[in-house]
Every structure is written in C-alpha cells, then in structure tokens.
Write a protein that binds this DNA or RNA. Structure first.
Lengths: 242, 242
DNA sequence: CACGATTATATGTCTAGACATATAAGTCAA
DNA sequence: TTGACTTATATGTCTAGACATATAATCGTG
C-alpha cells in the first residue's frame, strides 16, 4: 500500500489522523461495525491532546463514516449507499461492502495521443497521452456496471505501467493518486446495442449513468462514465433533517 | 414558518450558534456572499470561548454552507446544486434557484381510505385516510417533472384542508410539517404512455426517478415519486477530497 | 502610478485541563 | 431469570489561553 501523501506539504495533525482512519475504512481494513480505537488510545498513539483526535473523529462522524456512541466507542458505519457511490468512487468497495462477490473484466485498454474529443472530455486545452479503458464490473457474476474511462497521463504518468487486467482502474487510482475534487453527474439513458450486450439487458432498457470527473488541484486526473442497469441498480441517500 | 424547535430539550451552545446561523442562511436573510460575523463578534454575542464558535463555524464549513477565508472572514456560499436536489426537497425552490420561472399544475387530488398498496408504499401497517396527489412542475413553461405523492393523513391531518391547487404539496409540507429523516432512491426508467404525455416526451425515453420517503420520528409523513426527463435533467454533486 | 515590503487581523490548529451525560456492564434483590 | 440500582467509562461540550499562517490593507519607494 503506497502511502501517496507526499511529505512535501505537511498536513495538520488532526487531518492526518482523520485521513489515516478514513483510509482504513475505505480500503476495508476496518469493515462496517468495526470499533475504531478509543480517543485515549489515539491520543497515546499520536502523542497529542484529546481535543485533536476528537476533532478528527467528529468530522468523520459528520461525514457519516463513523458512528459515535457514548460509553461504547466509535464504530465504522455501514456505507450509506450514497457514500459508496457518490463519495468513495470505488465500485469494488461498493460491491464487497454489500456482501457480494466482486468480478472484473478488462474489455480494452489503449494508450494513445489525446484526440480533440479526449481533450474536450477531460477539459484540458493541451494533453499529451491518455489511456482509454473500457471494463465491466459484476456482482455475484451478474453484470453490475460498464465503465468507460479516460486517464490523463500527463497528470498520472505512472498509470502507463499499471496493470489494469487484474485491478480495476478506479481502485488503482484511488490507492495511487490523491484527488482534491470530484464532480458527479447523474442522468438516465436507454441502453444502446453495445451496453445491452455487455450488461446482458435489452436494447432500450433504462440505465442510470454516473459521469465522474476527478481533479488534483488544477489538473484533471480522469473522466469516467459508469452505466448501471436502471431497474436493478439504485442510489440511496438518507438524510437527517428537522 | 413554524419554528419547531421546542424549548423542552436544551441544545448545546455550539449547536445553537450553528442553528442560528443556518437559519439565517436558509431563510435568505444572509444571502450568498454575505459575510457572517467574525468569530470574536460571535464570542461577544454568545459570551463563550472562541473554540465554541469555531466548532459551529467549522461544521457549517464542512457542510459547505459557508466558506472561510483567512483574514477575510466567513461567507455564505452559493447553494450547491446537490443541496437543491438532494436535500432541500423542494422543486419550486430548486427551479427558482436556477433563475427559471416556476410553473405548477395539479393533475388530480383524491382523499381516500388507505388501500393495501398505499399502506405498503408508506410502510405502515394500519392507516386511516390518505391523500393521493399527481401534479406537474415546469420550468420556463417546459415540463420539468411529474410528481406522484401519497400523504398519510394520520400523521398530517391538517393536509386534508390544504389547498394544493395553487401551492405544490412539497412546498406546503416543507413549510407546515417538520421532518426528522428522509430517504431518496434514484433510479432510471423509461417513460410509459402517461409519463410521456405529461412530460411531452416520447414513450420509451429515459427518465430519472427520485423516490423520497419522509418521516417525523417513527411516523411516515409522505412518499413521493418524481419523474424527470432523463436527457434534460441531471443531478450534479461536487465533492472535496484529498 | 505601479509594485514590493510591511503590518494587522481573522482564521487554523493545538493544549491541558474541566465537568456533563449517556449507557454498557456489573451487582444485588425479588 | 428478571428487574432495579449502581458504577465505570467513553464520548460531548467547553474554557482560556497559545502560536501558526494566509492574506487584505497599508505604507514606502522608485
């Protein structure tokens, strides 16, 4: 696990604590229900005051990643389906979090000089090379989503040598490239012949589309379109109000 | 506007500060761009330490309601598109926030004893009467969404006398009934003949569906299904990460 | 006037305490 | 076994300070 936090910028302590815990949750090392260390244990581990770890844990709680219970401790929450889809951005984690078996197939992978439409899709004026990837995710051996992705190699040169045959590009990027901002657009389309074939559904069947763009600072990292069979897949979000 | 914060429970100070500011933002008293009082001013106003107001402001910043800039102050942010769709739950506000003209038509409104399918949809075992409503929202005179709603009259008896001819039920509920929890499910379908007619699109065209359930404590308030033309409507969400 | 250096200031982070409070767990009696 | 009471403990909130840091505003200089 390559700790991609370059030592160049020094994140503050509470952010480091928060990121450490967040990573263990997102990678699945601490699964839903897992009790994370008590505040006093984290105080000892990081050698700081309780307010500092409290701030880290409070933010995780506000983000619904953990649940805090008096006297009992703090626990990893079951991923809100929304979080899984809208925030984590990793289909493998989403599927395994649901307790289903994850399957992945690379359909094609091409390294090429950026075309005009590539540049437009990535929102960059000039680009060198890009990787175009198509792949399929499945849950319990049933097609779950088809993914079309573009990675800007001038932002992520190490992606040129990554092995996307075994590891899905979303997971690889999540573990190798820090991002600062992401945008999702959700819409609905009907399946064309290619989507119908890959997802094993009828042509004209409704599909949910998530277009995601990811940036690190001013640099575009990747643009991805995920197509889900609309009758089987749902995004669920739960809110508290009042 | 029924302020439903009963004085029975005593919220903690930082939560009160946060709620005070939040209300001013949500009611529009402090519009986007408005500079909210400096920490030291709030310290004076509430007679507490800086850490306490800092906690309130930090949470508002994490929720993207305000933006904090060193030396400059804290400012109300422009509402994120996501909030408009996923959180506010009011189409009229969503459309007017986009600067478009809002139109509304009641298609039908029936008051009836709850049928078995009504009870199932509302998730209640026994129910007295319900109101079933169908209506259409439009933006700039173009159909924007069709709404199918069920209101549980045993939870909201005053809805029986509400005038849903002029005021959309979502707005009415938002202003008359406090809610504690809501769940959204987003999916994709193709337009059937009725949806196609109301939305003025082709049969078989893709549509985005949002199913929303709203509760107040243990009681179901309402279940609503919103159908948006899938090629014109999009849900956009932007996140910060890193 | 334009531009670089300085200063003032609001936020960002952190500490070492304090008391409050909800509740898991243990204790004891019916 | 069950229910009521007690206790221990982890989190929740808060304070009165401190220093760091980014930057708007000011000042000086060419």
């Amino acid at each position: 696990m390559s700790l991609a936090t370059d030592a160049a910028d020094k994140p503050t302590l509470y952010k480091r604590i928060r990121a450490d815990i967040e990573k263990r949750i997102l990678t699945g090392e601490w699964p839903p229900g897992h009790r994370i260390p008590f505040e006093h244990e984290l105080v000892a581990r990081y050698g700081c005051s309780r307010m500092t770890v409290n701030k880290a844990l409070s933010e995780l709680a506000q983000a619904d990643l953990i649940e805090r219970r008096r006297r009992a401790g703090s626990f990893v929450r079951r991923p809100q389906h929304q979080s899984a889809v809208l925030k984590i951005a990793d289909i493998r984690a989403e599927i395994t979090a649901l307790g289903r078996s994850y399957g992945y197939e690379l359909i094609h992978r091409k390294l090429r000089a950026a075309t005009a439409s590539d540049r437009e899709r990535l929102g960059v004026k000039k680009a060198g090379k890009v990787i175009a990837i198509a792949c399929r995710h499945s849950a319990d051996d049933v097609p779950f989503a088809v993914e079309d992705r573009l990675i800007d190699l001038s932002s992520v040169p190490e992606a040129a040598t990554a092995d996307f045959v075994r590891e899905p590009p979303g997971s690889w990027l999540l573990h190798h490239v820090p991002w600062t901002e992401a945008e999702h657009t959700i819409s609905a389309v009907v399946a064309d012949d290619r989507a119908a074939e890959v997802l094993d559904i009828a042509i004209g069947a409704p599909c949910l589309v998530i277009d995601r763009y990811t940036w690190r600072g001013p640099r575009t990292i990747t643009a991805v379109r995920l197509l889900y069979p609309g009758d089987s897949h749902r995004l669920v979000a739960r809110f508290k109000g009042g």
